[in-house]
Design a protein around this nucleic acid. Structure first.
Lengths: 229, 229
DNA sequence: ACCTGAACACCGTTCAAGT
DNA sequence: ACCTGAACACCGTTCAAGT
């Protein structure tokens, strides 16, 4: 049983295989449980039991539940970072890739959106994402204020879509087809536009996300052209 | 004490002034409490006490807490409806107004975003908002599929911004100025673009929201022009 | 028929008591 | 020094018992 403890040879605890619990291990276990059971059902008791520990021990590493979940959020943002392409491509491709990386990461961790969605990401990984996008925009020729507004718009747009990922089948299009049927049976006199559009509903959240993302980027391109560059 | 009970003259209860509690009254009280204390701190016990009733009585009107909060959400969407202008203006102005109405409503009820944000609004008021926006888009000449994608993009974009309204001072720009200072003190070698942009950060969430909304609408205009109309 | 107090099975958080 | 069981003050939900 290999442990990163160079000094300690014997563990004083009577039970074997119980090294000092590292922060990262707690965070990883918490993410696993949130992914599996949802943010609402996740509890510190559940986490403690999963780690063969007690809730009081968790308070030795984190000041409270919110602090712990912030750590989990930061680790999720770390996954986004690994999906960003190097700064080489065209600025539109870079922004597209950054938004996609954020979206796809939350597709893997849909229950984490509610944990991260209402905060400005100030941790290491959140800052790196911000830096990546701002650099792409500044290099493209946008003024700093426009760049930071564009950053917020793209990330908030993405968060808005991600917040629906927790719903059942929202990414497979199953729910979309159910909606299609529901909208189609509404009273055409009261909801004419909704009934007309119902048969042409997109097949899934991801398609809708990519469509609107393109709109945003086209809006940005227009902005750049008008400024003459 | 005027009550909407034409038949009943005397109330059997020993305590005076306790009519049968209408659903709407419960919802209104719940919204008041969520606005005042936040969605997390809101509890059924709190609501029952506020109504001089008991939690068990609430289960007579709603099947559970989620059901009750869905009712509160529906009533909030009712406020959006009252802020929509009549269908006369240009399509861009109508979409702008609809998104603004949604945003401003959540500015008044920031803690309700987390309750409504992850659901497709299928209640009466949600459908009316959808119909309003879809009608504007179809009248403008957009194809049904594009119209429904545009609807989702605009509403999700708005929800994404609204989800940050619960944060302290996010609408006044106080938090923005704090961020500005924080970003300005970062290491310029590691975060060059962030440091460059820091002094030009927008002053508040509302400005950023309106900027990105314009981008989306410009993207839509471009879409319409290219299709030739 | 309608409402309620009290119970049940949980929470997050704290702390005296153990090793 | 570090960890823990048990306690504290809460939850959402249910139900026998009251009127």
């Amino acid at each position: 049983m290999d442990v990163d403890l160079p000094d300690a040879v014997a563990v004083p605890s009577p039970r074997a295989g119980r090294p000092a619990m590292p922060r990262d291990q707690i965070v990883a276990a918490a993410l696993e449980l949130v992914d599996a059971h949802g943010a609402d059902d996740f509890s510190l008791r559940m986490l403690a039991k999963h780690l063969n520990s007690s809730t009081a021990t968790l308070y030795r590493h984190f000041s409270n539940k919110e602090d712990l979940l912030a750590g989990v959020g930061e680790s999720v943002l770390g996954e986004v970072k690994t999906h960003l392409p190097a700064h080489e491509a065209e600025w539109r491709a870079e922004l597209f890739a950054a938004a996609e990386a954020l979206y796809f990461t939350f597709e893997r961790h849909p229950h984490m959106v509610s944990v991260l969605g209402d905060r400005v990401a100030l941790g290491q990984n959140g800052l790196l994402l911000r830096e990546y996008v701002l650099a792409a925009l500044l290099n493209a020729g946008f003024a700093p204020q426009v760049a930071s507004q564009a950053f917020t718009s793209i990330t908030r747009y993405t968060i808005g879509f991600c917040s629906q990922l927790g719903r059942p089948d929202s990414s497979t299009g199953e729910a979309g087809r159910a909606l299609q049927e529901h909208f189609g049976t509404l009273d055409p006199a009261r909801y004419p536009a909704t009934v007309t559009s119902a048969p042409f509903l997109p097949t899934g959240l991801r398609d809708e996300f990519l469509f609107g993302l393109t709109l945003l980027l086209n809006g940005l391109s227009l902005h750049l052209e008008r400024r003459g560059m």
